[in-house]
C-alpha cells in the first residue's frame, strides 16, 4: 500500500514514522481518513487543509478530537452524509450500547 504523507499534516505526532494513538477510537478515526482518501473521496491536500482549519479554529482540544471534527465537517461538505444523519446515528449507538449486556458486541 502506498502510504500517504503524514508529515504533510499539521501537528501530527509521529514516532518512528508512525502515528501514536492514545485510545482505540483515535486509530479508527485515523483509518477512516486513510481509507476515504484511498477510495478517492478527497485528495490528501483537501484533508490537510480541512485538518489545518480545524486546528486553527480557536478551539483548544486534543489532536484527534480536531481530527474527527475535521472529518465530520469534510464528510458533510462533500455531501457524503449530513449533520443530522450523523447526530441521529450517534444517538442510535448510545441507545444500542445501553441495551447491550456487558460483554457482548454492541450492534445497532
Amino acid at each position: 500500500m502506498n502510504k500517504p504523507d503524514l508529515t504533510a499534516l499539521e501537528g501530527m505526532t509521529l514516532r518512528q514514522g508512525e502515528p501514536v494513538f492514545a485510545e482505540p477510537w483515535e486509530a479508527q478515526a485515523f483509518a477512516m481518513v486513510i481509507n476515504l482518501h484511498e477510495r478517492g473521496a478527497f485528495s490528501w491536500d483537501q484533508w490537510a487543509n480541512a485538518l489545518s482549519q480545524e486546528i486553527h479554529s480557536g478551539i483548544d482540544r486534543p489532536y484527534y478530537r480536531h481530527w474527527l471534527a475535521a472529518l465530520e465537517d469534510l464528510v458533510v461538505e462533500l455531501g457524503l452524509s449530513s449533520t443530522s444523519a450523523i447526530k441521529d446515528r450517534e444517538q442510535a449507538w448510545h441507545a444500542a450500547a445501553a441495551r447491550t449486556p456487558h460483554g457482548e458486541p454492541i450492534e445497532l
Partner: peptide
C-alpha cells in the same frame, strides 16, 4: 466512540 461509530457505519 459513538461519534466514530456513527460516521463509520454511515460511510
Amino acid at each position: 466512540d459513538a461519534r466514530v461509530r456513527a460516521l463509520e457505519s454511515l460511510l
